[in-house]
Simulated scan of single mutants.
Amino acid sequence: MNNIRLIVLGYLAMIYGQACFSQMVKDDFKSSETTQSGRKFPQVNSEGRVRAGILAPEAQSVKLDIGGKKYDLKRNADGFWTGDSEPQDEGFHYYQLNIDGASVPDPGSLYFYGAGRWGSAIEIPAHDRAFYELKQVPHGQVREQLYFSNLTNTWRRCFIYTPAGYDNNTTKRYPVLYLQHGSGENETGWPVQGKANLILDNLIAEKKAVPMIIVMDNGYATLSGDNKPFNPTPTGPFPFEQVLIKEVIPMIDKSYKTIANKYNRAMAGLSMGANQTMQIVIKNLDQFSYLGAFSGTANYPKYDPIDVPTFMNGAFKDAHSLNRQLKLLWLGAGTKEPVPFPASIAAFKSMLDQTGVKYQYYTSEGTAHEWLTWRRCLNQFASLLFK
């Protein structure tokens, strides 16, 4: 009798819990800006919950995989599966569906290149999204630049942002920011997920940033005859550094109206791109005056105290010289960055403090290793350039 009573009480608790959950979830779901035109799902509500839906009548199990957790979807009589996630952080998130054990993109979502593949993503509206929204301001252009790399013996591609009015004034010349993506992403990251063009359009329209050109290239490169792509070392060059310095910068200075000197050239990147940026700028101080590292440093993933005389071949041991050559060394990261990023960045900052190298540090509140962090970083960093 006691066992039966416990079973009944457990069942009633489960039903009550489900009812309470249903009542707690706000039913104000709307299509996301990443939902394909004409599709109903994916959706997001005011709590940041994601609702996925897919027709899969032959499937036995469908799950929504987002934020490191899988959520079971429920099937209706027509074979249409739907289900909700827990509230997600503000910003842009990659996700996928898991159908009978196979992870696949959501056919209702636009596709983005991230995590080494084309896949689904959803935008959770951020409270401060105004700085990267499409507004009634003069807009620049994002141009696709194809070029043949003799170093890699392949055709490559970069995207070029030119500010509003670039084509109208034939005599005006512009400074350049070279902006790099992160691991598992490519040259589409910043102009698509990062909304770099909209961020600069808005900054320039508000007179918070100097009109500039932005070059967004693919950070992965393999030299002809080599089988080792991006592999930075403290002392020697790596493939993308050679492509950028020997091929991309000369091409941009020849093809675009740039101010072709180090004082009007900056470089920044996120995560892997931050590592690349530090390696390239510090070893090519005759080419750059501004360095921006978003969610990454050259010592990643190590977080032990940095040995200044040996780190990057002693590049940071002469603070006076470095401070004179760099107009700005800028670091930024989210408050929810995963291990080991916080410790690695802290070790790098400690080294800068120890040596007396000047820098600025920005904290993105409530964000992790994700695009909202990096959009905010670009917004802050770009406003300080070339002034």
Rank of each mutant, 00 (worst) to 15 (best):
N150I: 09
A196P: 04
W81A: 09
K349Y: 05
A77W: 03
L146W: 03
L9N: 06
G356M: 02
V62E: 08
S46W: 01
Q360W: 01
T171W: 05
Y174T: 14
M312P: 04
P175L: 07
E187A: 14
A121E: 12
R129C: 11
R173W: 09
I122L: 02
T170Q: 14
P237F: 05
E365K: 09
I99K: 02
R157D: 05
G68P: 14
L223W: 10
A102K: 13
N169C: 12
L146N: 12
V243R: 02
L64A: 01
Y362F: 12
I66C: 02
V248T: 10
D201S: 09
P191D: 08
R156T: 03
L200G: 06
E33P: 06
P175H: 04
T335R: 00
A126L: 11
A209P: 05
Y256E: 00
G91S: 10
V215G: 07
H139R: 12
T367W: 02
T222N: 11
K387Q: 15
G53M: 00
G219D: 13
H139W: 01
E185H: 15
Y71V: 15
P138W: 01
M278T: 14
P163Y: 06
P211S: 11
L6M: 08
R324G: 02
Q325D: 07
E370M: 09
D28V: 02
D84V: 10
L326S: 00
N261V: 04
S183P: 08
M278I: 12
L223H: 08
R265E: 01
A368D: 12
K63H: 12
Y166S: 08
A346C: 01
